[in-house]
Measured scan of single mutants.
Amino acid sequence: DETGKELVLVLYDYQEKSPREVTIKKGDILTLLNSTNKDWWKIEVNDRQGFVPAAYLKKLD
């Protein structure tokens, strides 16, 4: 059920640097789980959840 889920576009590649982070690729469109922290957003990638720098993402309307 995708209702109410926010999507984000990945602006730059990011390689995870800790187990709490996930790797993302430029151009991916992913589900945003939590954006309350202005610097690190929690997203879902391939059934994995983790954090990436918010500056690497853009919210889609």
Results as ranks from 00 to 15, higher is better:
38 K>R: 11
32 L>R: 01
7 L>A: 06
24 I>P: 00
5 K>M: 10
38 K>A: 13
45 V>H: 13
60 L>M: 09
6 E>Y: 11
59 K>P: 08
28 D>E: 15
40 W>A: 02
28 D>Y: 07
51 F>S: 03
32 L>H: 01
58 K>H: 08
56 Y>K: 06
47 D>W: 06
4 G>M: 14
56 Y>H: 15
38 K>S: 11
59 K>D: 03
38 K>D: 09
50 G>A: 07
19 P>C: 08
7 L>G: 03
22 V>P: 02
53 P>D: 02
49 Q>K: 10
29 I>K: 05
58 K>I: 11
14 Y>V: 01
59 K>M: 09
21 E>K: 03
58 K>E: 13
9 L>C: 08
14 Y>E: 01
36 T>F: 08
38 K>E: 14
17 K>T: 11
13 D>S: 09
13 D>I: 01
21 E>C: 04
61 D>G: 15
37 N>I: 04
25 K>S: 10
18 S>C: 09
5 K>R: 14
19 P>M: 09
21 E>S: 05
38 K>P: 15
24 I>C: 08
14 Y>K: 01
31 T>A: 12
31 T>S: 09
57 L>I: 06
55 A>E: 12
6 E>C: 14
41 W>E: 00
24 I>N: 00
26 K>T: 07
5 K>V: 13
14 Y>D: 01
5 K>C: 12
24 I>Y: 03
49 Q>R: 11
10 V>L: 01
32 L>G: 01
33 L>W: 05
45 V>Q: 08
9 L>F: 07
20 R>V: 11
21 E>Q: 11
17 K>A: 10
57 L>W: 01
13 D>M: 03
51 F>L: 08
6 E>K: 11
25 K>P: 01
24 I>T: 03
8 V>T: 03
21 E>I: 02
8 V>A: 07
15 Q>A: 13
33 L>E: 02
48 R>Q: 08
20 R>M: 12
13 D>R: 02
6 E>L: 11
32 L>Y: 01
11 L>G: 01
21 E>N: 05
18 S>T: 12
47 D>S: 12
9 L>R: 06
31 T>E: 10
44 E>A: 10
8 V>L: 04
37 N>A: 08
45 V>P: 00
13 D>F: 03
43 I>F: 00
45 V>R: 12
44 E>N: 05
47 D>R: 09
